[in-house]
Amino acid sequence: MTSIVVLGSTNMDLVAYVTKAPARGETVTGRAFRTIPGGKGANQAVAAARAGGEVAMIGAVGADDFGYRLRDVLEHSSVDTDLLRTVEGPSGTAHIVVDDEGGNAIVVVPGANATVTSLTAGDEALIATARLLLLQLELPLSVVVEGAAHAHARGVRTVLTPAPAQPLPPELFDVTDLLVPNEHEAVALTGRTDPHAAALALLDAVPEVVVTLGAAGCLYVARGAEPLTVPAPRVRAVDTTAAGDTFVGALAVALAEGLPMPDALTRAGTAAALSVRREGASISMPYRTEIDAALATPESLENDPV
């Protein structure tokens, strides 16, 4: 059985590092530029694989150099790419500005991701073998709904990261078991300005919600249970680009292994804290041994980034 299947995007991240992000109409001088494999789907796949999960990826890359590199980084992270399609045209790209405080702004150009509009028979068979299906919103919404419905009908737990934030149809909420928005996405989905109120409002649509709160940790709410806030480890952030995807990938592994939700959230938060201490998306994600070591000695996270 494949523990975790990711139905999601692959992008090449084109990252400019600046002291302060430019305002509209402003030009600033950057201090560095890097091309880094990413995309929310690929990021979550790599994060889960590095955290110790058995992971397979469904999606698409372009027939270009970026596509070759994206597939290569997934395979080197031990992600099964047998159902990662190669299509004519460019791979997806994400254009990212990272400031000296670790904040970021991102423009995504879908490229090959836009061609994944429905599941193949092979996709359906693979999803049916999983414990969890991870989904995001960087693929066409039609295939996200189809994938979630197929998994839900076969008893596969569905975990949706609603990013980039957009209105979601009731049929997607109906087949989502666990929704993991950040605080801004939770507010966007509900119109509630307080993340705690937004999380509780989302329980009308889905059984469980985890709202990530950045440096403040995360909030877990579930029907019939008291809300739970799990603080984040204290670290000095260098680049927060893939923190949310690292959190979800590590959380998926913990849940697939049967950890109780409080322990799973602590583990996911520790993985995310480790990731923000390094630059980049997939390359910043910690391995299982690093997560274990940080959990054993939490004070080590407050040291300078490595």
Rank of each mutant, 00 (worst) to 15 (best):
residue 211 V to K: 09
residue 231 P to A: 13
residue 47 A to K: 10
residue 49 A to N: 02
residue 189 L to I: 08
residue 31 R to S: 15
residue 267 R to H: 06
residue 82 D to L: 12
residue 65 D to K: 13
residue 132 L to C: 01
residue 133 L to V: 10
residue 9 S to M: 07
residue 22 P to C: 01
residue 290 E to K: 04
residue 109 V to F: 02
residue 4 I to M: 02
residue 2 T to Y: 00
residue 122 G to L: 07
residue 10 T to P: 13
residue 94 A to M: 11
residue 214 G to R: 02
residue 75 E to N: 01
residue 104 N to K: 03
residue 52 G to I: 07
residue 242 A to Y: 01
residue 43 N to C: 08
residue 270 T to V: 14
residue 217 G to S: 05
residue 292 D to R: 08
residue 232 A to C: 06
residue 67 G to M: 05
residue 235 V to Y: 02
residue 258 G to V: 00
residue 297 T to L: 14
residue 130 A to L: 01
residue 291 I to R: 00
residue 109 V to D: 08
residue 264 A to F: 02
residue 196 H to N: 14
residue 244 G to L: 00
residue 290 E to D: 02
residue 97 V to R: 07
residue 95 H to P: 11
residue 73 V to C: 01
residue 61 V to C: 00
residue 73 V to W: 07
residue 217 G to Y: 03
residue 155 G to F: 13
residue 240 T to I: 03
residue 29 T to Y: 14
residue 164 P to C: 04
residue 152 H to Q: 12
residue 88 E to C: 09
residue 27 T to K: 03
residue 191 G to M: 02
residue 27 T to H: 10
residue 44 Q to Y: 07
residue 221 V to P: 14
residue 134 L to N: 12
residue 288 R to H: 05
residue 110 P to W: 05
residue 218 C to E: 00
residue 81 T to N: 14
residue 285 M to T: 04
residue 121 A to G: 15
residue 24 R to S: 13
residue 6 V to D: 05
residue 59 G to I: 12
